[in-house]
Design a protein around this nucleic acid. Structure first.
Lengths: 217, 217
DNA sequence: CGTTGTGAAATGATTCACAGCT
DNA sequence: AGCTGTGAATCATTTCACAACG
């Protein structure tokens, strides 16, 4: 359809951040925004913002900037957020429950439509308005309810098995919260959120900064 | 102390992944591992693994590879994981509770030692073995219990205010789960986990891949 | 004026390729 | 033979700087 240059991964990540920021700008009643302003709000340079947007076309008016609501709509369209996505959760432990009841997702067009668990103890329970179903039901539900994305919130041990099951059922992408690397066929997109990695990353930054300060004295 | 080149951020992130993988290798009884093997497990090239490790010194034996447990210990030391970190949670909602009771953290040397919330309704409740304390107690607790890292799991609206409070109390780093960009002084390290960004990222990948497939036909 | 969009330059990261060790 | 550590080459991303525009 539209001709696009290859999109750098860092750019793709920042698009989400632009969206988040534009959402706030709209709520605070702003009409127009410049690349400088948008960049400052996110700790980026103005040039960076413009280069990112340039991947997708021309949105701004020289001398004026961008129309906030217009820019937001266009980015939403680019990222496919104008159509919603149906999600399924697998693994209804502590984290799973928190994700399932996270309000924010619905605002942004992500809707959970089913929840599954391996344990017979939780199957049948009602959590966040969903009746938890057994893994055997995954295949049928993914098709019937047009589930695009499977969210894995199981222990590390079962994550790969669950991923295989979701892939087999035909999801287009998987978001993995289990602390383990998953293997999926190249047709399926994979994202991951590892809380330990995030914490370790931060602790590492702290320890590096501490060393710098010592060297400095 | 040790002379180090500047560490590329991608390298820092991968160090966490190496640690995770080495942990598994140890559990599966492996004694030695090559850069090729370690790289394959994580979807990286062998050269990449070696370059990463080279930032911190020489760990391997030519012709043989790396001693798994040795390498793990050394990376743990480099990342400061050989000493534990004390954490405080602020915001005991759904996500906060899940984080507080996440077992994995303790295994990796991260220990929650306090939990706080703004709402008088939850203050005083006991969650995951912690008595939830009011925000006024943050300052004293951070000092008394040597809290290094504050974890923010509040709604977006109060996140910045909470961050200011934690900074003021003297934490070295903040991990932010609220969907909002925080500003902290340059002396404090900041990490963030935004679930919506992670999902959007994945949805974007899916939408890009879908387009490619269409173009291809 | 102020701001965009964009080539060109600079910086940063990854991959290559091989000398040297075991 | 097999593998590490590393300089050199390639590739990717960011920043610079400026012409064109409202």
């Amino acid at each position: 359809m539209s001709e696009r240059p290859r999109i750098p991964k860092p750019t793709a990540i920042r698009m989400s951040l632009y969206l988040r920021e534009l959402h706030e700008s709209i709520q605070s009643g702003r009409e127009r925004i410049s690349s400088k302003l948008l960049g400052d709000a996110l700790g980026l340079t103005d040039a960076q913002v413009r280069k990112d947007l340039a991947c997708f076309g021309q949105f701004g008016q020289p001398g004026v900037g961008y129309r906030v609501s217009d820019l937001r709509e266009r980015i939403r369209h680019i990222m496919g957020r104008d159509k919603g996505s149906n999600l399924a959760l697998v693994g209804v432990g502590n984290i799973g429950r928190a994700i399932l009841t996270y309000r924010r997702f619905q605002e942004d067009g992500f809707q959970f439509v089913a929840a599954f668990d391996q344990s017979p103890q939780v199957v049948g329970q009602s959590i966040g308005g969903f009746r938890v179903q057994p893994m055997e039901a995954v295949r049928a539900e993914v098709r019937q309810r047009r589930i695009d994305i499977g969210v894995i919130a199981t222990p590390a041990e079962s994550a790969q098995e669950v991923a295989d099951c979701l892939v087999d059922a035909g999801v287009l992408g998987i978001l993995n919260f289990a602390p383990r690397r998953l293997t999926v066929p190249p047709t399926v997109c994979l994202g991951s959120v590892d809380l330990t990695v995030a914490l370790e990353q931060l602790a590492f930054d702290i320890s590096i900064r501490r060393e710098l300060r010592q060297d400095h004295s």
